[in-house]
Amino acid sequence: MTTSLDDKLRRTLTAVADTVQAAEHALPAPSPARTGSRKRRRLLIGAGVTIAAIPLAAAAIIRSGSEYVDQIPPENPIISGSLDGERYWVVDGRDDPRCPGSPSGIELIAEAHNVVGQEWSTVGAVFGEQTADGCPSRQPADPPESTYFADGGLQIGDGMLWMGALHPDIDQVRVVLDDGEAFNAAIFEHEGGEYYVLEVPPGTETLTIDYLTDGDVVEPPTGDRHVVPIE
């Protein structure tokens, strides 16, 4: 029976895979010179639990637009830093014209992914449940408890920058890198919401994050664990 099932699975998966035929596609290269309608890839991490071990994996929404990098370093960064020799900046998220009145959150710009003249490649975080039209919540001060946090990461060099937007009830973000001692991530306020940004050094194999309210770990209803293996 095992052999028969093994064989059936192999035949099935091969047959199904063979139905995928590749159309000709150019290598994705974000250069305005190669296409006139490229999308600006701003990845907005939505409400709830989002775990990413590599860049872009945290995408919940890809916003479109035709904006290209015009200046590096960006103006008025909230945070500037460097990780594994590569510079990054956390800035006020850009407003989406489709979403008037919505908060813009924060946006992470890594120098290595953003070259002047090419399209933006950034990751953003904003708190709140998305509206039906895909915009951030316009009432971030009163979000449902099912949206305790929204977080995600971006690889910078061989390290990772991890960031998150927090439910107003969360007052502590406890971090453990590998088997090291726990420490608290610094929380900062932006647009009335609370955020944190965390550098995960190269060589880290596991990032563990707990979100706490009054010293108690918050368990999101989704049940996702927040132990993130790093590539």
Partner: peptide, 19 residues
């Protein structure tokens, strides 16, 4: 999903390019 598969592979190459 064929559509998601396309997105996934494009994103994999896109994220690999800088490094």
């Amino acid at each position: 999903s064929r559509e998601t598969a396309e997105d996934v592979v494009q994103s994999a190459f896109l994220s690999a390019q800088p490094r």
